[in-house]
Structures are given as structure tokens and as C-alpha cells.
């Protein structure tokens, strides 16, 4: 049962990473590409982490959750810095 959950969640996560990468290639400009990267890949990572949780001891599980949290935070902050520099005066 736990294995089935892992397979489903990690596969769904992999599909989202694929979609995020496709977005990076297909979307027309920097800002729309940032949407693809932050939102889709964040969810993909979340599903991979969620899927792996039942396979792990509590310390390893806490570590995975910490990694997820750090990626969310750094992703959101870096995205904003990139978006600002795209829109900033005199820069393109």
C-alpha cells in the first residue's frame, strides 16, 4: 500500500517536472517561464518528497521536508529577484 502510494506520487512528481521543463522551452518570455519553473517544479518536488515519506525513518523524513521548505523559500525569493531585474529600468 505504501509502495503503491510512493509509485503514484513520485510518478506524478516526475510528470510535473517534465511539464515544468516543457514550459521553460515553450513559454514565450522570461516572466511566463518563471511561472513554469516556480509553480510546476515546486509541486513536482512536493509530490516526490510526499511519495518518499512512507519509505523513510523520521530523521530522513524531516530532512526531506526541510529540503522542500528550503527550495520553496529560495525559489520564491530568487524568482522575485529575477522578475524585478527583468522589469527594472533600462534593463531587458
Amino acid at each position: 500500500m505504501a509502495d503503491l502510494f510512493t509509485i503514484l506520487a513520485v510518478s506524478a512528481g516526475a510528470v510535473l517536472f517534465l511539464a515544468g521543463t516543457l514550459g521553460l522551452l515553450r513559454f514565450p518570455d522570461t516572466l511566463t517561464r518563471l511561472h513554469a519553473l516556480t509553480k510546476v517544479d515546486n509541486l513536482g518536488l512536493g509530490l516526490v518528497v510526499l511519495g518518499l515519506l512512507p519509505q523513510l525513518g523520521w530523521l530522513a523524513a524531516a530532512k526531506m521536508l526541510a529540503v522542500w521548505l528550503l527550495v520553496q523559500l529560495s525559489g520564491a525569493v530568487v524568482t522575485q529577484i529575477l522578475a524585478r531585474s527583468v522589469r527594472g529600468e533600462g534593463e531587458s
Binding site: 510528470v15 511539464a19 516543457l22 516572466l31 511561472h35 509553480k39 509541486l43
Partner: peptide, 22 residues
């Protein structure tokens, strides 16, 4: 909301005509 956000963008990407209105 992050599930909604991810699925929304993923659906746009995977739709051949890409219904974007940025």
C-alpha cells in the same frame, strides 16, 4: 494553492495551443 498553481501551469504547457493570456 500550490497544487492548483502547479496543475494550472502544467495544463497550459501540455495543451498544444497553449492558452496563455499573460
Amino acid at each position: 494553492q500550490s497544487v492548483v498553481a502547479g496543475v494550472t501551469v502544467a495544463r497550459i504547457v501540455l495543451t498544444p495551443r497553449m492558452p496563455l493570456r499573460p
